[in-house]
Design a protein around this nucleic acid. Structure first.
Lengths: 187, 187
DNA sequence: CGTTAGTTTGAGAGGACTCAAAGTCTGTGG
DNA sequence: CCACAGACTTTGAGTCCTCTCAAACTAACG
């Protein structure tokens, strides 16, 4: 879903409002492998991922990258807590494929929240959806064996599973690369 | 924090607005062990837990109860997805101690969201906070050994750890009772 | 093509699980 | 106020899944 339809269908903004809102966003092309947010920096922008793929990850005590989330087409990409609560991000955000995004600064989005009650609602709904997805992942991770977690991944993100390095998925699912490799073979 | 202070300090409602908002809620006493939402039922109410303790849980394939979340004093208690998206709940909600709550119907809360832009923001903020907590838990569960998960629990919910049966906590942390019992001993 | 990133395979170790049984606590009725 | 039943917790033994470490293999890219 492109951003305009998103605003129209999910938040019922009028044509006029949409024009204004879009004018606050900026289209950007971001190329593969770029890191758009680093750990410790406060996230200043919200991105709507028009096309492409990204992920957030952190570095654990052993110095390994742990994928926290994948962001696909038609989704918002940011470090939510860092952006909203204006505190240093625990995560990196990395673009995994050449992407097109609409970006907006924290400042401008706050103005939109201020100006449009509907925007506030859209924010609430988007956050609720995110919450719901994180809870689903938590349930999958918490009690399932490695094989079932991979099934969850295939079910929830069918089009991502084959686009990114196996190691990124393994850490996303809370297992080692080796384990994921073995699972993938047997299935 | 009591509900009135919550509304005043976090959402900056005026005295007058607070009076109206509170009039929409209903004070209820709920006694220990009561189940206020069952799996498969659509959640109709949002509860502000003035005093007491609750949990949400689900029944897994082996018929075991898995604690999904604990709700403590001064927090909202509900099945968020079920309430907001008006779909059957995957979870049960159980009150673990005699509690005092302020409850409001889905219908009324929607009217409050409609009436007050600030209420919508409060909802967004509360959801963001919840999201942040779930993400923290996910990180704790995903890569930590049982012992460290228990430490996370003690750090995040110091006053809950000793108020509920060990089995509830074990399932919350993604381990068996036996494992938690052994961990508790060694620490 | 050579170099590096990514994936697969193997062997051994260890944490957490399951199943089973013994203790311990708690609340209710006599 | 005690005794008992049921709920909850602890302990033990054996098993299995996933991890770690190591090395070989394969794919991608300049």
């Amino acid at each position: 879903m492109d951003f305009k339809s998103y605003l129209k269908e999910l938040a019922h903004f009028s044509e006029e409002e949409i024009v204004y809102i879009l004018s606050q966003f900026q289209e950007e092309k971001i190329s593969k492998n770029q890191i758009i947010l680093r750990e410790g920096k406060t996230c200043k922008k919200l991105y709507f991922l028009q096309k492409g793929l990204g992920r957030s990850f952190y570095i654990n005590e052993q110095g390994k990258e742990i994928t926290q989330w994948f962001f696909g087409d038609g989704k918002f990409m940011t470090s939510f807590e860092s952006l909203i609560q204006e505190k240093p991000s625990f995560y990196f955000i990395e673009v995994l494929e050449d992407s097109i995004v609409y970006s907006i600064s924290k400042q401008k989005i706050d103005l939109l929240f201020e100006k449009y009650h509907k925007m506030e609602r859209l924010g609430r709904m988007a956050t609720t959806e995110m919450l719901s997805k994180v809870v689903t992942k938590l349930n999958a991770i918490q009690f399932q064996k490695a094989k079932d977690r991979y099934k969850y991944m295939l079910a929830e993100y069918p089009n991502i599973a084959n686009r990114v390095p196996l190691g990124h998925i393994a850490s996303y699912l809370g297992m080692t690369q080796e384990t994921l490799s073995r699972i993938r073979k047997q299935k």
